[in-house]
């Protein structure tokens, strides 16, 4: 959340200069540091919603209902190569070897054959789009077919996407795939069609242990910010500086 200090006036000035200078291409040259902050409105405007998401790894039991419900709600192809959300099963044995698996994204459940004494640590990690504020995927899109909405959700315009797959390459978290029928990039929309109507996301709706939470990061008294205040939450791959808005409680260093 350390990305809120974007100076409004400076950006506006640059935008105007760019228009005068004959196109926004100039903007990225004039201010290369602005290159990663695209489209989204200033999240510092506290009166507006800015969506964030929390996953509590301690609570996840790996039932895979989230991955299943997501595929149903969003018409994601059923084959095991297309997921908007999936659950990973980590097993770290006493020698420090890390074993990760996610058969069919966890939809069919997991088996743990090892005994407690053979295992150093084992847990489940649900994965999904991080809805980064400085999204590498939005940055690389050639035509503006993927973007950050004013309330901080990264969406894909399936009528405009040309299917070049650069965004799939740019996403460090493997959250994008090419929809086999639509031939465009596809990913988690944070159930934008639901949250805009006051409902919660499909994955949160079906989660039996409330391991998943969505909320407004601008609402300082809201449950999400409170949770972040009271728990040691981390984001995935922080060194890549994507300003991820998906926070994990009890995240282990082995998780990548």
């Amino acid at each position: 959340m350390g990305t809120k200090g974007v100076k409004n006036s400076r950006r506006d000035f640059l935008k105007k200069t760019a228009i005068v200078g004959g196109g926004t291409i100039a903007a990225s040259l004039l201010n290369p540091f602005d290159a990663v902050l695209i489209a989204s409105e200033d999240p510092g405007d506290k009166s507006k919603v800015w969506w964030g998401y929390v996953i509590d790894i301690d609570k996840c039991i790996g039932c895979g209902r989230c991955a299943n419900a997501c595929k149903t709600e969003n018409d994601v192809p059923k084959e095991p190569f297309f997921f908007r959300t999936w659950v990973e099963h980590y097993t770290i044995n006493n020698d420090g070897d890390v074993h990760v698996e996610s058969p069919n994204g966890g939809i069919d459940g997991f088996e743990q054959t090892l005994d407690k004494d053979d295992v150093f640590k084992t847990f489940f990690v649900p994965k999904m789009c991080n809805h980064c504020h400085k999204s590498p995927c939005v940055q690389v899109c050639q035509v503006g077919a993927t973007y950050d909405t004013p309330d901080g959700v990264v969406l894909v315009d399936d009528k405009y996407c040309i299917g070049c797959r650069y965004c799939v390459q740019a996403c460090p978290y493997g959250c994008r795939y090419i929809h086999p029928e639509k031939k465009v990039a596809d990913k988690c929309t944070l159930c934008y069609h639901r949250i805009s109507k006051g409902k919660t996301t499909a994955c949160i709706e079906v989660c039996p242990t409330s391991a998943r939470m969505i909320g407004n990061l601008n609402d300082e008294k809201g449950p999400l910010v409170k949770f972040l205040k009271n728990h040691n939450c981390l984001v995935l791959k922080p060194h890549l500086n994507t300003a991820s808005k998906l926070f994990y409680n009890s995240l282990n260093a082995e998780v990548r």
């Binding site: 899109c141 503006g144 405009y160 040309i162 797959r165």
Partner: peptide
């Protein structure tokens, strides 16, 4: 490309940060 027929978009609305 998944949609070769949309190729012209690269010239019409190039995304400056890409």
């Amino acid at each position: 490309l998944g949609h070769p027929e949309r190729f012209y978009e690269i010239m019409i609305t190039p995304q400056p940060q890409s």
